[in-house]
Design a protein around this nucleic acid. Sequence first.
DNA 1: CTCCTCATACCGACCGGTCGGTACGGACCG
DNA 2: CGGTCCGTACCGACCGGTCGGTATGAGGAG
Lengths: 223, 223
Amino acid sequence: MALGARVPGSVVPGSVVPGSVVPGSVVPGSVQERLVAAAVHLFAEKGFDSTSVQEIVERAAVTKGAMYHYFRSKDDLLYEIYHGLISQQLADLDRILGAGGTPGEVIRAVIVDLVETTTERLAEAAVFAREMHKLSAEPMAALKAQRRRYHEVFRDLVARGQADGAFASVASADTVTLIVFGIVNQLPRWYQPDGPKSPRQLADEIADFVLAGLAVPASYPAS
Amino acid sequence: MALGARVPGSVVPGSVVPGSVVPGSVVPGSVQERLVAAAVHLFAEKGFDSTSVQEIVERAAVTKGAMYHYFRSKDDLLYEIYHGLISQQLADLDRILGAGGTPGEVIRAVIVDLVETTTERLAEAAVFAREMHKLSAEPMAALKAQRRRYHEVFRDLVARGQADGAFASVASADTVTLIVFGIVNQLPRWYQPDGPKSPRQLADEIADFVLAGLAVPASYPAS
DNA sequence: CTCCTCATACCGACCGGTCGGTACGGACCG
DNA sequence: CGGTCCGTACCGACCGGTCGGTATGAGGAG
């Protein structure tokens, strides 16, 4: 697996803002970023356990000492990966909710965003889906709280549409929510970035299907 | 991790039929079965890599020597787990296809079966979904061939319904297939056996939702 | 019935290697 | 000089797999 040219001089000598290392607010190309990027790639390819710290630091072109300067442990690296992805999705969610609309419109926007962010950051999503359970209790709780919020917002959207009569109730709002996140979380398993379908096309197909599943049969009178 | 009493005498001294050890056709309570059961439990709980062979043999109340007598490697154990589950699902598929029916009826039966077998064998399914990629090339190819067959049958069912005009084509047959298997494969992540919904109820909800997603809007004239 | 032979089933100590993490020293900067 | 940043050398734990050996029972020979 060729790594390409690795000129030590080309590595900007991390003149990162010293002091508190705030995760997520990191100079591009910095040691931290390179480490996270290398970890994402390797975890996605071979899994968390089968990737050694040595491989990560080699791919990031730094040494172990550097890595353990910025991260407390290998698990810490994993947490950064999750945190980056879910934080973006939550920010997107707030933006979409802020824009307003009918439950149907909002749900479509949410699904499209989930599919697009997932396909954009496929490696992160793959790692997230596959290795989430490796986290220890504390970071796991933080992640689950974020997830939970996302789920609750979505479920309430469905429930609101059902209460309006805009959506059918063949499946409960909870089940629909779990179905939708099941679809999205499974995406990294089969989505091919170089396939014929653009992320946007795929997102629309999935949103169409879900909204069709929620549609009230037209023969119904507005009971 | 207390193992409880482990009386050597209580272990039936595997008077298994000597000669060919055919995997899958194994005396209940035999050493092989106990090993697979222990492995399923531990892999589901802590993941493949984080489970040591020592832990497996302790849980099965046998020794390492016994394990390596029956299985070539730790991976071999993993393969047995997959093989058992997918073989059952393929057998069910054949039974369902044999019974005949419209694409809608068959699809419903298939989804119900998938959900029921998955919830019945939740630990196996969880391991399958999470650790499949750990297999080496050869067994992986065998598994993928079985999976592929299942997918193709399902996709053709959808495509046939769409060609008939019985199903809408908002999402392509391929996408619908991937969506459905996405839902099913994600089941072990959130399904609670002790929750309020029976497997059958859940299966019906999911099947209803999928078939609603495939339904032709009633306002359509039969083009 | 008895003895010998041999295959199967299993035991458990052990090994080579790997891995996450640490100790410590030095370079560079303010 | 003191803190940040990072390199190097190394440690101790653990793990998958091996291997020499034993126990048991079936089956043939005499």
